[in-house]
Amino acid sequence: MVEAVKQIMLYVNDQQATADFWVEKLGFTIVANEKNGGFHFIEMKPNPASETSIVLHNKEMIAKMSPEMNVGTPSLMFSVADVSAEHQRLKEAGVKVGELTQMPFGTVFNFCDNEENYFAVSSK
């Protein structure tokens, strides 16, 4: 039986630029930056105590190694205590953000990273 989500893999064109985006704009922490031969991954968390991490892999390399894999960006939704404040903070940090939208489950907005991959944020 599955007990938790350990890692979310993001396949990106520029691992370091994307890691810099998540660290500088969203406050993530790098927990591993491993290079082993031609294989390189960067693992990061929204906070060090988080059980789930995001791992950045080189999209082109993964597509060559495993052509059957879907290297598209998954649809992820993050939660924050104050969605309006986070929307404003990201906007002021120069992140491209969508409008605050009221949904049946709460207020949400989307944002995109440095590679134009879109993600969502909602209130807890």
Rank of each mutant, 00 (worst) to 15 (best):
A19P: 03
F21W: 10
F21N: 00
W22V: 04
V23Y: 04
E24K: 14
E24H: 13
E24T: 11
L26P: 06
F28P: 00
F28C: 11
T29N: 06
I30H: 03
I30S: 07
I30G: 11
A32V: 00
N33R: 04
N33D: 15
E34Q: 08
K35L: 08
K35Y: 01
G37Y: 01
G38V: 12
G38P: 09
F39N: 10
F39L: 14
F41I: 13
E43A: 15
E43Q: 11
M44K: 00
K45W: 01
P46Y: 01
P46T: 01
N47L: 14
A49W: 09
A49Q: 14
S50D: 14
E51C: 09
T52G: 02
S53E: 00
V55L: 10
V55P: 02
L56W: 02
L56T: 02
H57E: 06
N58C: 12
N58F: 00
K59Q: 10
M61L: 08
M61F: 01
M61W: 07
I62N: 01
A63E: 00
A63I: 00
A63Y: 03
A63P: 05
A63C: 03
K64E: 14
M65Y: 09
M65P: 08
M65T: 11
P67A: 05
P67N: 02
E68N: 02
M69E: 04
M69H: 04
N70A: 09
N70W: 11
V71T: 15
V71P: 04
G72V: 03
T73G: 02
T73I: 02
T73W: 00
T73A: 00
P74H: 06
S75D: 11
S75L: 10
L76P: 04
M77K: 12
M77S: 13
F78P: 07
F78Q: 09
S79Y: 08
S79L: 05
A81F: 05
A81P: 00
D82G: 15
D82M: 06
D82P: 04
V83M: 05
V83K: 00
E86T: 07
R89K: 15
R89C: 05
L90Y: 13
L90W: 14
K91Y: 12
K91L: 15
K91H: 12
E92Q: 14
A93S: 15
G94P: 12
G94I: 02
V95S: 13
V95D: 09
V95T: 05
K96Y: 07
K96V: 14
K96S: 12
G98R: 06
E99L: 11
E99S: 15
Q102F: 04
M103G: 07
P104A: 12
F105K: 03
G106H: 06
T107I: 10
T107F: 06
F109D: 08
F109A: 07
F111S: 04
F111R: 07
C112H: 12
C112T: 11
D113L: 03
N114W: 03
E115G: 06
E115H: 06
E116G: 11
E116D: 14
E116N: 13
E116M: 10
N117M: 11
N117G: 08
